[in-house]
Design a protein around this nucleic acid. Structure first.
Length: 938
RNA sequence: GUCGGCAUAGCUCAGCUGGUUAGAGUAUCACCUUGACAUGGUGGGGGUCCUUGGUUCGAGUCCAAGUGUCGACACCA
């Protein structure tokens, strides 16, 4: 599985060139990306070994081994790569461990489907035969997604690639199972579980999703088996039903077919309308079984008729009632949710025990073997025909369905393995609540706490073959042993049975496999072999990992359980920070789905916009925890940005260098930009520390495009004389290259490919060197830096104002103008004057006491500027503009003065705030005065 | 039903412990094919910060209620 384009390594600096030897005007990612990824691999730049540096570890949320890359992965993996590359450039020993998940139920379902296409049924195969098919499938499709991650630029240490069912991970899972069993935390027993009748396995509570459905509510007649005594009177609150057959109670249900498992009817003892039913017996319609009326406050008086049918085998709440009142549980279904022949056996027994009028009864034989929904329809029809149905109403209901197969689950009593959660929940709660482990965004702490505080035991066994087989062996004489392997099992079995001649062949291993998440929860430990080999060098070094990046949908499945396992087996948190990503939606806010066709293929996007472009598109609107409305337009923006970087590089690289003196404008520009970089680096560090990655990207984006390209480069760009470009002085050139390099480093985590390409081209590099290892340490900005940048903002305002004058008066950029100003002491007027002249194309800046007549004037701060325009000036328009501004300023002044005249404000507000208001007042007054003066002179 | 998040420009979102008449990206409009880049440049327009009350000298920011919206959990058979 070799990446086609990546195999041939090319020269360090191949770039598409134009005929004349200059660089092409467009950046071409396709030529660059494969080349550099291979370079990184060839030089083992992603690989990590424990050393003296601070570790930075991320374990990948393992995608399904047979999965393919979708937009959700692109988001998730891009974030991880940004974090890893950022940490690596900070000088940390970055280790990103990739791998895949065997995804027990999902993969088994896919294999079963494929076999079905070939006409093979799973039930026709032995376990070994089936597993052979499953492994073949895994090898065929497995790892495709890992190859696709390379296209994205992910800097995983591929030598560490793990699989949740490889040898190390399998042994770890078994070891943990045995350990938890011996600690008494794992037990086996018959419980009500969620049964998936399609996958034919039990599921955990977390694997059940509720879907809204339009169904029916059936009101069925349960006739009284005994005569009705006369101790109730009509009108005393009792609601009594009677027809020609006799008295009856009405029971409302959404599942009429389950009456075959009815063993009681339950009323609320406080329900006035059902008092007459107390102590009675009723006859289950169709079935003919006579059942008692029991009383429990669990029953909601308001719902339906207040009469609840009790079917302990098929409803969790009924099961609890059954336990409480010691009722029989009649399981009416086969494993695939067709009706079992037990229903007719039970009916015969019931009819034999008690005689029931024949017209209440329908032979249940006809339903045996029918599918549950067909049966429901049929029995409703039959009851209606037999006059046993009072009425049928429309009803909206939420139905629990299997997350994986989508079919409605059946609550089913069955023998399963469970993990007690109380202790594990205990150790996992406080680290999150007190921020030892930090959630981003923090709102998920609530969700987390709620789940842990209401946790139930975890059903960990699955009636599947693709997974870790439960290490329990049953003895021929009954009972079982739990052991890490067959030898140990045999030994334990011999001890337990007292039969020293017992052979392995006498033992039968449990057929079930473990829930996939029972292996995933060990991932941050098992990847470093910390379960089998506790305290080894790797686990000591890399654990706890730094950041976990995942979706909030698996906070219970995975995140919470990793925290439990982490504390149970390492005594430490598995990760320090959890970054929850949102769901990737389309730009209309809809979930991406195959049927809507709104899910772009990431690989096609990469082809179209380049991996860097796609990564940027993804990150531009991806605040942690918010859903992402993905729009290709953002990838386009990413691609355009690449192109901008590329062209800035072309410009700088195209300069001729001379040993001339540095022009004043360039000198101040380099000073300013160097300060600007320090400020930006500080801002970036802050964004990263808060995991505000899209803001970090936006910070660099604006830094490169606006500050560097539009301001800095324009200020230092050598002029053209007689149509010929002049050379740049060496000082400026060197500074520019250094700035460029810093910018590339800042951009690298977000856009690894183009930054490597240009970093390699900007200076000569040694073989094997890479930008990804280049450290970025800028000194903290000084007060002088801050002042300089603030002053420069004023410069920009002046330049922009002059450009606005040009734009309004339609004066060509080439035409030189003169600027007049009244306050020479202003920063903007002195050290920056050369820069202003260059950026605004001025021939002079004159300090004047009185502006020329016929000039366009403007205020920056309290300094007055004017551009003499001669007869170009439109006095009316000028007056109008000034009047608008005057109005605005006067309104402003009024509000400030109102504040200042409020004694309570002056007394209560901090001195600095009051001072600020006074300054605002003075400034506004001065501005108003100068505008009035200008107006008067017009 | 319980709990939680969110509501700011056409769109997507910033706005930290309250303190200049609220910002960014994008979209949009006008002008400009100059010599890195039209995948570009320059300039402009655009907001009752959901509503109502309260606290405060001062509220987009804090509190309460309401409305809308999204989510988690629990579900009445």
């Amino acid at each position: 599985m070799k990446d086609n384009k990546n195999s041939e390594v090319t020269t360090p600096l191949p770039r598409e060139e134009q005929g004349d030897g200059s660089l092409a005007s467009k950046y071409s990612p396709a030529e660059v990306e494969g080349k550099w990824y291979q370079y990184w691999l060839d030089h083992k730049l992603f690989s990590s070994k424990p050393d003296g540096r601070e570790p930075y570890t991320i374990v990948i949320p393992p995608p399904n081994v047979t999965g393919v890359l979708h937009m959700g992965h692109v988001l998730n993996e891009t974030i991880q790569d940004i974090l890893v590359r950022h940490a690596r450039m900070e000088g940390k020993n970055a280790c990103w461990v990739p791998g895949t998940d065997h995804a027990s139920i999902a993969t088994e379902a896919k294999v079963v489907n494929r076999l079905a296409e070939q006409g093979i049924k799973k039930s026709d195969l032995t376990r070994e035969e089936f597993l052979k098919h499953a492994w073949a499938w895994t090898e065929e499709h497995g790892g495709i997604i890992l190859k696709q991650l390379r296209k994205l630029g992910c800097s995983c240490d591929w030598d560490r690639t793990g699989f949740t069912m490889d040898e190390i991970r399998s042994e770890s899972v078994i070891k943990v199972f045995v350990d938890l069993y011996r600690k008494g935390l794992i037990y086996r027993g018959v419980r009500m579980v969620n049964w998936d009748p399609k996958a034919l396995t039990a599921l955990s509570d977390e694997e059940v999703v509720y879907k809204e459905e339009h169904t029916k509510l059936y009101y069925m007649k349960y006739y009284l088996a005994d005569s009705v005594p006369n101790d109730f009177v009509a009108g005393d609150g009792n609601v009594v039903h009677k027809d020609k057959r006799g008295y009856y109670a009405v029971v409302a249900t959404t599942r009429p077919e389950t009456i075959m498992g009815d063993v009681a009817m339950c009323i609320n003892p406080n329900d006035p309308k059902n008092q007459w039913l107390k102590g009675k017996k009723v006859i289950v319609p169709v079935v003919g079984r006579v059942i008692p009326v029991i009383e429990d406050e669990y029953v909601d008086i308001e719902f339906g008729t207040g009469c609840l049918k009790v079917t302990p085998a098929h409803d969790v709440n009924d099961y609890m009632l059954g336990e409480k009142y010691n009722l029989e549980a009649i399981d009416i279904f086969n494993d695939d949710a067709t009706l079992s022949d037990r229903i007719s056996t039970a009916q015969q027994a019931a009819l034999a025990a008690k005689s029931v009028p024949a017209d209440f009864v329908i032979g249940l034989d006809r339903y045996v073997g029918t599918e549950r929904f067909a049966c429901r329809k049929q029995i409703a029809e039959d009851m209606t025909a037999a006059g046993l149905m009072e009425k049928i109403e429309d009803y909206d209901n939420k139905i629990g369905c299997s997350e994986r197969t989508g079919v409605p689950i059946e609550p089913k009593l069955s023998m399963q393995w469970f993990l007690k959660m109380e202790h594990l929940a205990d150790i996992a709660l406080s680290p999150v609540m007190n921020d030892d482990i930090q959630f981003y965004p923090a709102k998920y702490k609530n969700t987390y706490r709620h789940w842990l505080e209401n946790i139930k035991d975890w059903c960990i066994s699955r009636q599947l073959w693709w997974g870790h087989r439960i290490p329990a062996w049953y003895l021929p004489t009954g009972g079982f042993v739990v052991a890490e392997n067959e030898q140990e099992a045999l030994q334990l079995a011999r001890e337990k049975s007292g039969d020293a001649n017992l052979q392995l062949a006498d033992l039968r291993q449990d057929e079930d496999a473990l829930d996939t998440w029972f292996s995933s929860w060990l991932w941050p430990i098992s990847l470093f072999d910390g379960i089998r080999n506790p305290g080894n060098e790797e686990i000591n070094y890399y654990y706890p990992t730094a950041d976990l990046v995942t979706g909030p949908d698996i906070i219970f499945f995975w995140v919470a359980r990793m925290i439990m396992a982490g504390y149970e087996y390492e005594g430490k948190m598995p990760f320090k920070h959890v970054y929850f990503t949102g769901i990737v939606r389309d730009k209309l806010g809809r979930k991406m789905s195959k049927s809507l066709g709104n899910s772009p293929n990431p690989l096609e996007l990469i082809e179209k916009f380049g991996a860097d472009g796609v990564r940027m598109g993804m990150m531009l609107s991806a605040p942690a925890g918010n859903d992402i409305l993905f729009d290709e337009v953002l990838c386009e923006q990413g691609r355009n940005f690449n192109n901008k970087i590329w062209n800035a590089f072309r410009l700088v690289k195209g300069w001729e260098v001379a040993d001339s003196e540095q022009p004043e404008a360039a000198r101040i520009a380099t000073q300013w930009f160097s300060a600007k970089l320090r400020l930006a680096a500080e801002e970036l560090a802050d964004d990263f520390s808060k995991y505000r990655l899209s803001e970090a990207l936006m910070t660099v984006y604006k830094l490169f495009w606006d500050e560097f390209s539009s301001w800095y480069l324009e200020m230092v760009k050598p002029a053209y004389i007689d149509g010929k470009p002049q050379p740049v002085d060496r000082t400026t050139y060197d500074a520019t290259l250094q700035f460029f390099e810093v910018l590339l480093k800042m951009l690298h985590p977000f856009m690894p490919f183009i930054t490597e390409e240009l970093w390699q081209a900007i200076y000569e590099r040694k073989a094997g060197e890479s930008i990804m290892q280049a450290e970025l340490h800028l000194p903290a900005p000084s007060d002088a830096d801050r002042q300089l940048c603030a002053d420069f903002e004023t410069v920009k305002e002046v330049v922009t104002a002059i450009r606005a004058v040009r734009s309004q008066k339609n004066i060509a950029p080439k035409e030189k103008l003169v600027l007049e100003m009244t306050q020479p002491q202003q920063a903007a007027g002195t050290q920056f004057s050369n820069a202003i002249m260059k950026m605004a194309n001025l021939s002079a800046i004159n300090v004047v006491t009185e502006k020329s007549s016929g000039s366009a004037s403007f205020l920056i701060g309290t300094t007055e500027f004017a551009v003499p325009l001669g007869n170009l000036i439109d006095l009316d328009a000028e007056r109008k503009k000034l009047e608008t501004e005057l109005q605005h300023l006067e309104g402003f002044l009024t509000s400030v003065e109102k504040k200042l005249s409020n004694e309570r404000f002056v007394q209560n507000a901090p001195a600095a705030v009051v001072e600020m208001e006074r300054k605002k007042q003075a400034d506004a007054q001065q501005k108003i005065a100068s505008i009035r003066e200008t107006l008067a002179s017009l």
